[in-house]
Nucleic acid binder design. Structure first.
Lengths: 182, 182
DNA sequence: TATCTCATGTAAGTGGTTACATGATTGC
DNA sequence: GCAATCATGTAACCACTTACATGAGATA
């Protein structure tokens, strides 16, 4: 799939270690892509083997050594080609909806509890995104700013809008379940 | 993951053949889960092997024979247990956002074209959902209707809200790209 | 003494995609 | 004759998860 290109994108922006990339997945890139450290290290190994990236070992006295990866010319070409191509929509997979279809089997109460948990998780997530928006992006990027800044803001916006849409559905769903209980 | 349980859910509602299940994925269940026929048949084989489902071959004179699957007692217990348990949020993966981060590499024009394609695909999708909503669910399910009907409607609503949120973001993103071009 | 952060990996198993394969019937 | 629908599968490969593993320095 495209984890390969996510990793390439990050290395293209800034030469860095596998550990740094993992941190990006936990933080900034995390609101539109997730990956575990095992995936990242395996991807780095395979990208390195196909010569899309190169690395140099950087020794450190106080911390373990790290490998600093940078993109190669072929790598940048490949990234360009991929990013220019058409985008296929990613497959939909919503576990909660499957469970909802089993309403008669599990009972309404169980579903309500599950939805409540989703509400609080989504609200927390949204709160994080909104605080980033007001801390980092107020005012939002202006025409004079770099394309990069605009794009990062747009990815954050995607996260925010997604959460809000999710919450709206969760509200509809909770109301429906309530009416079914009486 | 939970493809296993999606298949179980469908068989639990109504004993049916693999082919029927594949059709469900292309149609109704399609707006919150996707699966290819290969996946479905493999899942049926493995569910059958673990005795969560049973099948009988139904011979047909005009069409090829089919295997009609039904859920077993252990299968229903397993489904109940899974559906009652906590739901983890599914990992986020949005390819287009990764491409957006490469704005400086590929250029704004390319991204605009990609977004336009996403807009038209999403609009088509939304139109389909909305027509189902007005054809099948007007008026929407009332308190007296079956839980199943309410749940099916909610899954449709999830699809609609998702499309609308996506379109809202696409609009924001397109505007941003326009301002960057000048 | 125990846990956290930094930094890297291997191994086994499951889930998912792509391509290949068959064979009968119906409709244009 | 060609494509579509019905109905089932296999094989190879790629993506992803879970668990296991190491080892040093920092902090409580």
């Amino acid at each position: 799939m495209s984890l390969k290109y996510v990793v390439l994108t990050l290395i293209n922006k800034q030469p860095q270690s596998g550990y740094d990339i993992v941190k990006s997945f936990d933080q900034s890139v995390g609101y539109f892509w997730s990956a575990s450290h095992q995936q990242v290290y395996r991807e780095l190994a395979s990208l390195s083997e196909s010569d899309w990236i190169k690395f140099k070992v950087q020794t450190q006295s106080d911390k373990p050594d790290k490998k600093i990866y940078r993109i190669s010319t072929v790598g940048r070409t490949a990234l360009h080609q991929w990013a220019s191509g058409p985008t296929r929509e990613s497959p939909v997979r919503e576990t909660q909806l499957v469970k909802m279809l089993n309403a008669e089997l599990v009972g309404i109460d169980v579903l309500q509890t599950q939805l409540e948990q989703q509400v609080s998780r989504t609200q927390q997530q949204l709160a994080v995104y909104l605080s980033i928006e007001s801390d980092v992006y107020s005012p939002p990027p202006q025409p004079g700013d770099t394309a990069d800044q605009h794009m990062l803001y747009l990815t954050l916006r995607r996260g925010i809008l997604g959460c809000q849409s999710q919450l709206q559905w969760l509200d509809e769903a909770s109301r429906t379940l309530s009416t079914l209980k009486t």
